[in-house]
């Protein structure tokens, strides 16, 4: 079976600028894939190509096996795109807005009414159905945009910065909606600047900078690829300098740096080796009050993988 979304070696140039350079990745049904990168990295261009709004100069994108180049209409039937800027019509209520797009997607009669009812229920917009779209809060507008994106029940969703500008509560609610959509079997490509959010919900990520993919895979896979050693955080009752002096003398301990009121050091070894290290440390007279494996998060990965290049 064809993957839900397959981006195959796409390149897009705007004059002398190569906005997207040989980008390849893919995602399966039910998978949430994070697309991260600094501003101007080529995220939106890639997403617009996937949504048939722009064409790649080279390569192609396939949605359930249908090419965006040759079968854009078939792709649009299978794909929902939520752009980063919400497009609202003046003097239009929430239900009229959804009704218009449901008609535009070719939904008729009962199907149209059911689809509108379903997406309003899913996004909890029913109480606002008679409200003008211009009077909605940012969070509600994003919900409405998501509802519009889901009207034709697409198998693949592309969400460009859906959490941008939302308050914490609205962000959490949006995250829950995205999770629920993935549980429904939809493949979701999502970009965001708020990396902590993506790391919680994404099955995989692609890091892009200056139009090039820097890394793809799950957060764990990328972490392993980036750092073969573990990082351990240590806080002791003794002054930090004493602990550092004792620590560097122990085997398998690599670079040590100060972090807040403790130390972070590289360590190469298994869980048993870690237990052994802790025992040896205590034997040297150091009294640890915190000894924890420091897990790399998406923000760390992002900072390590990208160089802050702006196009």
């Amino acid at each position: 079976m064809s993957p839900a979304l397959e981006v195959r070696s796409i390149t897009k140039r705007f004059g002398d600028l190569t906005a997207v350079d040989n980008v390849t990745f893919g995602l399966e049904a039910g998978e949430i894939y994070g697309f991260i990168g600094p501003n101007g990295a080529g995220k939106t261009t890639t997403m617009r190509i996937c949504a048939t709004l722009q064409l790649p100069d080279e390569g192609d994108v396939f949605v359930e096996g249908h090419s965006v180049l040759e079968e854009p209409r078939l792709v649009r039937q299978r794909l929902g795109f939520m752009p980063d800027s919400f497009g609202a019509y003046a003097a239009t209520t929430v239900s009229e807005y959804l009704d218009f797009f449901a008609r535009a997607y070719g939904l008729r009669g009962q199907d149209r009414r059911r689809a509108i009812r379903d997406v309003m229920g899913f996004t909890s917009l029913e109480p606002l159905s008679g409200k003008l779209t211009s009077a909605l809060s940012k969070g509600m507008k994003q919900r409405l945009c998501l509802a519009k994106t889901m009207l034709h029940d697409p198998s693949t969703l592309i969400l460009d910065e859906p959490a941008s500008g939302l308050d914490p509560r609205a962000r959490i609610e949006l995250r829950e909606l995205v999770k629920a959509l993935a549980d429904m079997g939809k493949a979701i490509l999502i970009s965001s600047h708020i990396l902590s959010e993506l790391s919680e919900i994404c099955d995989g990520v692609a890091v892009i900078e200056a139009g090039r993919i820097r890394a793809t895979g799950s957060v764990e896979e990328i972490t392993k690829g980036l750092q073969p050693h573990s990082e351990i955080f240590l806080r002791t009752l003794e002054p930090i300098e004493i602990a550092e002096r004792r620590l560097v003398e122990l085997p398998r301990v690599g670079a040590v740096r100060h972090d807040r009121d403790g130390l972070v050091f590289h360590f190469e070894g298994s869980d048993e080796d870690q237990a052994e290290l802790l025992a040896q440390l205590v034997a040297t007279g150091v009294r640890p009050i915190e000894f924890a494996l420091k897990e790399a998060d998406l923000e760390d990965l992002f900072l390590r993988l990208t160089e802050g290049k702006v196009q």
């Binding site: 949504a51 709004l53 649009r76 535009a104």
Partner: peptide, 11 residues
């Protein structure tokens, strides 16, 4: 109103 893209992708 940034709605043209939405029209295009709605087929």
């Amino acid at each position: 109103e940034n709605t043209f893209d939405l029209l295009v992708i709605s087929n």
